[in-house]
Design a protein around this nucleic acid. Sequence first.
DNA 1: GCATGCAGTCCTGTATACAAATCCTCGCCC
DNA 2: GGGCGAGGATTTGTATACAGGACTGCATGC
Lengths: 235, 235
Amino acid sequence: MTAPMPLDHQAAPPPAEIRPTRAHVLANALADSITSGALPPGTPLEEERLAAAHGVSRTPVREALRLLAATGLVEQRPRRGAVVSRPDPRRLAEMFQAMAELEAACAALCARAMDRRARTRLATRHAAMAPMAAAGDLRAYQAANVTFHEAIYAGAGNGYLAELAQATRLRLAPFRAAQLGGQDRLTASHAEHGAIVAAILAGDGTAAAQAVRLHLSATEGAWGMMAGQPPVLMD
Amino acid sequence: MTAPMPLDHQAAPPPAEIRPTRAHVLANALADSITSGALPPGTPLEEERLAAAHGVSRTPVREALRLLAATGLVEQRPRRGAVVSRPDPRRLAEMFQAMAELEAACAALCARAMDRRARTRLATRHAAMAPMAAAGDLRAYQAANVTFHEAIYAGAGNGYLAELAQATRLRLAPFRAAQLGGQDRLTASHAEHGAIVAAILAGDGTAAAQAVRLHLSATEGAWGMMAGQPPVLMD
DNA sequence: GCATGCAGTCCTGTATACAAATCCTCGCCC
DNA sequence: GGGCGAGGATTTGTATACAGGACTGCATGC
């Protein structure tokens, strides 16, 4: 847990000011390729090939693969090589549900732990997204959306929980549909955000958690990779 | 983590029937030594020494250390070696809180997802622990306690969430006090379990989650490593 | 025509060697 | 006497070599 786990939004979390090792650099590069979709799930990752491609020997490649295996982005089967993870639909559904629960917990904590400044910032950020949704500016909305959710992770005041949520989000990244789904989905998303923000500002943790579950189950549907049961909301 | 984050109750989760690699064997051995307290937090883990001690070369040792770093049991700082993780009190408190939230989510899911047989088994297991608590049989109670909590993880029907909870529990293992705290704590623990079971059997997810939070915050206190704020229960 | 067994090739797991960086010790200077 | 710096020893990072298992292809038998 790895994996846990060195669970950061980077694949490798060594302190910033320290010069990272080649394995870390490689792991980050591969993680970007995987989350961006350049290396689709199921792609075999041969050590020799990667080594040649990046101008290093097999050793750091192996360590990078272990690092990525720890984050769950790749799977390593003994003596059978590594491939970009391709979780089956059932597991994917589990990950989406777990993601919702993690973020719901963060939101509930936000409702009680956020100080005045943080609440104001969150509300400001949310308000700033309204024109993007109205204008259908998908790119801007997506960027702001990531920031919004990260603000909820951070606002919970629990770094470990935030790392778990962030790591899960990272693992799910390859399975996000490229688009959120158009203008109506955008405005709906913003409205759902509004419910979350309102509950947090009101200090209602239970409502905040439930609003997050609603939002993420809707998003999950928009992501389109669902193949299992319909999402179940908790009461 | 991973694979997942290699997040299993073993440090390395390769399929059982497959002969594991030496790095996995080593990682499991080291994980046991760490969780059992034989290797206390802060202990430096020199590659050459470990290699000699286990009769292998440095290569599998390095991979084992990466595996353990993924689970969070050890920390690896580039060019400065690995040590058994020693989270500061604040982070420890975060991990305990996250653990409670994860298990609360599992319990809530149990309340709605468990089938009849699973509910019966859970109740039976809980009942079986009563005489252990009454007799003050610490060893038996602890073993049954682990099984009880694992049943809640499994009963949620979400393998990914269960892995996160299990991994967090593993990471916290080195910081558990050796004892639960005596007879009164034992009976109190069993009573708290009773509230959890009752809520699950009643299908009340919210109550189950809250009962878990209560139980774990009490346990946390009994574990004694707390140094931060008192635990905050969510409503 | 299809399944099965076998050999060759490729790839991974492990060991070892070398280079570079860090840590520790000792001596020097203030 | 204490702080600082240089040098060596130790340890990690990386490269390379070798051994063993896994996959590919073909040949053989049914």
